[in-house]
Structures are given as C-alpha cells and as structure tokens.
C-alpha cells in the first residue's frame, strides 16, 4: 500500500495557501495517521517556542529600544 505521509509532510511545511483538494487530502490523512498528526503538532509548537524565546529576550530590551529611537531621531533629523 502506498502511504501518503511524505506528501502530507510536504504540504504541512508549505508556505502557500493550500487548494481545497490539497487541504481535503491533508485533513483526511491527518484523521487517519497518528504520526503525521504528531508531526503537525510539532510544527505548530515551533512558532510558540520561538515566540516564547523572543519574549524572554524582549522583556529587558524596552529601555534599549527607546534609547536607540532617541539616538536615531537626533542623528537623522535636519535640525
């Protein structure tokens, strides 16, 4: 039997808006395939992990951003 996990994996990482037929295929496959569902859950969590990481970095950066803004406005303005 030909499995569709490889094709599904490619669709799950695609940056494009999927066509109705491709979305339908993927949904159907995900309903039947635990491994692909878990792979998709992994992909979905990556954005969360990246945002959490960035948030931890950004928390201490607000003062630095304001000071950079002031510096840039002063150096770029004509007067």
């Amino acid at each position: 039997m030909k499995h569709n996990c490889k094709r599904s994996m490619k669709l799950m990482t695609s940056p494009k808006e999927l066509s109705f037929a491709k979305r339908f295929f993927l949904k159907l496959h995900l309903l039947m395939c635990d491994k692909c569902s878990r792979y998709q859950a992994h992909l979905n969590s990556l954005g969360d992990h990246f945002r959490t990481y960035l948030k931890s970095k950004e928390e201490s950066s607000q003062e630095k951003v304001t000071s950079l803004e002031d510096e840039m406005i002063k150096s770029l303005s004509k007067d």
Binding site: M1, K2, H3, N4, C5, K6, R7, K35, C36, R38, Y39, A41, H42, N44, S45, D48, H49, F50, T52, Y53, S56
Partner: peptide, 29 residues
C-alpha cells in the same frame, strides 16, 4: 525519515513534553 512506500520510519515524541522542559529556552536558543 521515510520508508520506500512513503510512510514514516520512526516515532515522534509527545510535543507537550517540551513545553514543560526546564531548559526550554536554552534548547531553543
């Protein structure tokens, strides 16, 4: 990661495990 017939070869761990991981931020970095 795939067999010749297009199916996954191995298993994936539960993605939820990582959310509570003590070294999550270091690992992401």
């Amino acid at each position: 990661r795939f067999k010749d017939n297009g199916a996954w070869k191995g298993e994936f761990c539960d993605p939820e495990i990582f959310y509570g991981h003590g070294q999550r931020l270091e690992i992401i970095e």
